[in-house]
Design a binder for these strands. Structure first.
Lengths: 197, 197
DNA sequence: CTATACTTTCAGTATATAGTGAAATATGGA
DNA sequence: TCCATATTTCACTATATACTGAAAGTATAG
């Protein structure tokens, strides 16, 4: 008899799969795939979106090996993607008592996840644009560009910058509302919105 | 003396560039670059975003050669990107009387552009996810999965699907409000939000 | 009709992004 | 402490996306 090599085994020990379990899995996979596709078109890479979808949809903590096996990805990829998701704050590390390996679980509240993502994207992408717009406006100030400020071309660009600033400012305010009001607040926001129209 | 070859020349014939014009150009370039960067993180390719930014910020019709020259891109790239932007509906083709070549101009109303983009993305990306969620829910119906429906794992996944459905449905409604209401709709939303909190 | 100015297409190429796997590192328990 | 196992890192590879440029296509003035 060979030595009982303690191989790394996904947890929990997988029981024989019933038809119902297979169907559950199929449904989950469908969701995961779709979520991955959507992620891509919003600038989130497919694997990250899929890992997140997986953790969200199964609703229970999984370890790295579970994720690797379920999505057929390498250890390195799983490790990096899981870390990135933790950094975003949409999944959490979890230590099980008496277990060596780490588990990960998704936030369960979609509204909260959305808040987190919105906050981050606003900070990373919208704020810099607003700042750039202000910078451009400054460059076209009468102070900086002199009497050429009355050139048609300059005036048009000024108007366009103003239009965009307007838009970004308002959008920012909306984001701000959502961000500050996560869980309970958001449903209130939504209720207010839907009633108002 | 060589033959006067009628070369393709960007329109209008470029006058000697004054310091003010240079500064205008610098400001515009800054805006264009930033907009391109932002586009990328939202899943729009850099060049397309830059062309759009260019047409928006200069506020006057440009021809393909103008775009090529200004952004240092090839004719093929310019042609394809311009067409894609037309398909999206955020820029328009424009024939100048007595001119052979085509010009392009951006919509001037940022709110309208946002509406158009929002409508398209909702249709392309959010609607399919909602449909997938419904499909998954059906697969986990008692009718389809039998008494296994009472398995913990199944119930959890059901809950998660419901949570996501909830979120997507409301988000969809909000989008719907924006679409078609463009500026007035959005400012109204903002007013409502700011009053309610 | 046909020469010319302009536009589109697309095969090929370049670039950027994502993913792998094995070595290096970290960590908890005996 | 050391060992076993879990985790991270990163040079390399694979894949996907973007871009070019030249040839083919189209439309208009003459």
């Amino acid at each position: 008899m060979t030595i009982d090599t303690p191989m790394t085994v996904p947890s929990p020990a997988r029981p024989a799969s019933t038809p119902a379990q297979q169907q559950l899995r199929t449904a989950q996979d469908l969701f995961i795939r779709r979520w991955g596709e959507m992620g891509q078109t919003w600038g989130i890479n497919r694997t990250m979106a899929e890992i997140h979808a997986l953790l969200y949809i199964v609703g229970q903590p999984l370890c790295t090996d579970d994720v690797m096996e379920r999505l057929h990805i390498s250890r390195g990829n799983a490790s990096m993607s899981l870390r990135a998701l933790c950094d975003w704050g949409v999944i959490r590390r979890l230590h099980k008592r008496g277990e060596r390996r780490e588990y990960f679980e998704s936030l369960s509240d979609v509204w909260e996840m959305f808040s987190i993502i919105a906050a981050e994207r606003k900070r990373r992408e919208m704020d810099p644009v607003l700042e750039t717009i202000k910078q451009c406006q400054q460059m076209l100030d009468e102070d900086h560009i002199g009497k050429a400020a009355r050139l048609d071309a300059v005036q048009i660009t000024r108007q366009r910058l103003a239009g965009m600033e307007d838009f970004m400012t308002v959008t920012n305010k909306i984001f701000q509302q959502f961000i500050g009001n996560a869980k309970s607040g958001l449903t209130k926001v939504v209720k207010v919105l839907l009633k108002a129209f």
